[in-house]
Design a protein around this nucleic acid. Sequence first.
DNA 1: ATCGATCATGAAGCGAACCTACATCGTTCC
DNA 2: GGAACGATGTAGGTTCGCTTCATGATCGAT
Lengths: 301, 301
Amino acid sequence: MIDLGALQSLRAIDEHGSVVAAADALGFTPSAVSQQVKRLEKQAGVELLERVGRGVLLTGAGRRLVDDGARLLADLERVEADLHAYSRTVAGHVRLACFSTAMRGLAAPTTRRLLDAHPDLRVTLSEEEPWDGVDLVARGRVEVAVAHAWGDVALAVPEHVVATELGRDPAHAIVRRDHPLAGRGSVTAADLANEDWVATPPGTICRQWLERMHDGTGRRPRIAHQSREFECHLALVSAGLGTALVPRLGRAPLGDDLVALGVTDPAPTRTVTVLHRRTLAGSPAVAAVVDELRRSWAAAA
Amino acid sequence: MIDLGALQSLRAIDEHGSVVAAADALGFTPSAVSQQVKRLEKQAGVELLERVGRGVLLTGAGRRLVDDGARLLADLERVEADLHAYSRTVAGHVRLACFSTAMRGLAAPTTRRLLDAHPDLRVTLSEEEPWDGVDLVARGRVEVAVAHAWGDVALAVPEHVVATELGRDPAHAIVRRDHPLAGRGSVTAADLANEDWVATPPGTICRQWLERMHDGTGRRPRIAHQSREFECHLALVSAGLGTALVPRLGRAPLGDDLVALGVTDPAPTRTVTVLHRRTLAGSPAVAAVVDELRRSWAAAA
DNA sequence: ATCGATCATGAAGCGAACCTACATCGTTCC
DNA sequence: GGAACGATGTAGGTTCGCTTCATGATCGAT
């Protein structure tokens, strides 16, 4: 790899016109500068200096190297300066992991605003299963994650990760307007014991919550249809094929034929939290992302 | 200044996920990699790694440095590769010094063609007094110069500079169509002994030649008007204010009212040469510039 | 809960890299 | 032709950086 110290010396020779002057400017002896260039020539396999008279001149390759290298050295200084300014500027690359509905309902508009407000900020979104969020943050694969936990169960996070609660996101029972319960503003879990359900696949958190909701009734929910996408749930309900339990966050607008019912006893709500490593709290970029997520949540509520 | 070796180590830690794995990949011991990062932290004044569990993770500043540094390291490799390819590609920066008329008549169109043919080539033109050309090349201030010497006097060049003759450029006597000599295809210096001259200022090469042309006649030329610009000479001749001795190279098209007369005994011609350092002959960029100049000259002749 | 394995990092020592001092050679100017 | 100047070799010493070894901390398994 090219030695940047030697490259600086070569540039100084070009700038000051002689090895002596360059050495003088750099605080070295002329011999040192001469040896640096010789080493550079050896590892590059090209002649860089040419003796003419009692001085030296850059060869073609030498000039080329100085021209290109000047940009390189300038870039290096810029990187160094940026690093020093790191704790004062919102810039750099923040990776943000979200579960599906938070991606649609929260992260997408938030990121749009962030990029508009901070031109030097780069945000990369990735959709991840909610239970992976904590791990991704803890292992440093992402800077920020949006995760959720159903009900009151606090999210278990390692000591070096900090979780900020955004708020609670309720799930509503979605029924057709011609459904017997459609007129009620809210219903209890017991009211829904006999529904045919459109559910997410077994093992998903939403599915588990649907089953938990039936714990008090003594029977299992009747799963008539299943789909990963809540958009499909709405379509199935619309077609009169069952009832769906759909989180508010990221839910598409309901058609005129559908009604969302609040559910209580127990209330199916999930707690949405933002996660980041404790040390990254000092990063203005991470702080900006977390702040904007909180602001977006508050604005939507 | 940031140590690029340490930067590579930091990147390896990010890539491989641990100090041990990074050291393994780089052929170092884990201790060495750890110490490199420590040094980097000290000189940057920022924490770059954070211990979590029995491993490490990049801090915010660390990630920033790795992101920015990756581009830097890639640039460095590109520069190195370009240097190795130097002797095979027409690229880089060539500075070309020209005297005024060669700039207009030769260098401008030639450079246009060069840039079109070689997108990675950069050419910088500078107008210089002709007698400076040799010096500029010899001292490495420009890569290529176009110079001229009047008559048969060969240009004196140092041993490490090579001069390539492009050809000879005649000066014509410019007279009005109603001038008594206008009908003759060519005239002798003696024919012109009684003209009123439009000349360049004293000390210029063109002025010297005008005086030399009168050596055989036993008298000095009558300088009626003087101007640095040959464009002005033509205008003055047009206005019937005298006769001008104007080189063919770079001469603007003559109006219908003007006639150019060839001159002999002695013939005022200058030899135009291209100059470059001997070692730069190996540079494809310099070779391309010289070749194209020769081609342009041949095409114009 | 304990032991062993894994990982990062410190201290000590050694080797190589790199700079200084000095000498030499070529060039230029007086 | 000699003196000054500039570049570059050589020898030597200092410093820097890697390895070895030891320590502390954490995680997983028995």
